[in-house]
Amino acid sequence: MTDFLHALLSSDVPFIRYALITGLVSSVPFGIIGSFVVVKRMSYVAGAVSHSVLGGIGLALFCNNVLGLKQISPMTGAFTFAILMSVILSYAIIRGKERIDTVIGAIWAVGMSIGLLFMSVTPGYTDPMSYLFGNILLLTFRDILLITVLAAIITVISGIFYNQIVATIFDEDFARIRGLNVNIFMIMLIVLISVTILLLITIVGIVMVIAMLTIPPAIGGLFTKKLRGMMAISAGLCAVFMTAGLVLSFLLSLPTGSLTVVIAGVAYILSIIFYRVRNGMIRARLEIK
């Protein structure tokens, strides 16, 4: 642990500091948006967006190395693809004429394939694994600034339109009768989910985004009656899991993303056991009375 604290304060290894700051800054939007994803049952939408951004990353690497467009970073490419895919998904959901699981599957697979194709035609070796499973070494100071701005934007927008988004996802018909443009709020929610996924990819990677977006809110949902409570617990848990994942990966020399998700998974199982045992005891006490 002392080694970790030493590394955290050392100027030689800034990426540890960057990773910790990124994890803590992003926890609030993760908690908020993850709760929306869980209650609206949109984890497959999140999965499709997260996997499809590999297309944007591959394209950005291609533009960078082959076309010489140095200003296009992998993060910029991922951001562009995340927005593009969320617009396509929103259109499909609102129009309601295509089978949504087919659209999700297509976006998921086609996005990844585009990414891998661009990576294969880009000179030099690009390891897709670092994007698929996360690599904190990829974080730069510029990324942190971008992540902080995006996290702030997600949190503020979610706060301002919280009541409208909740009304829309709880009972769309009633929200429409109350004069809400439910299509706008659905698009807003999907775009917010996509941008949140982008932040999460930098830490846990593309493949494990769904776990980190759904496990903390699922635990939160066991211990609170309200969505706000679920969001608060989820945000706290995100911060704890990411810090624990970072510390343990440093101490055990294991991948941060995978370790963070395993920690979250173990916490989820323990929470379910605790919840069931506690409920069983309450029920037994009531039966005795």
């Binding site: 009541n163 909740v166 009304a167 709880f170 929200a175 443009n181 309200k226 969505l227």
Partner: peptide, 16 residues
């Protein structure tokens, strides 16, 4: 859906 009875009723006042 994690929402209380009071919150559902309050959503009757939701505005754009």
């Amino acid at each position: 859906f994690p929402i209380t009875v009071g919150e559902v009723i309050l959503s009757g006042r939701v505005r754009p």
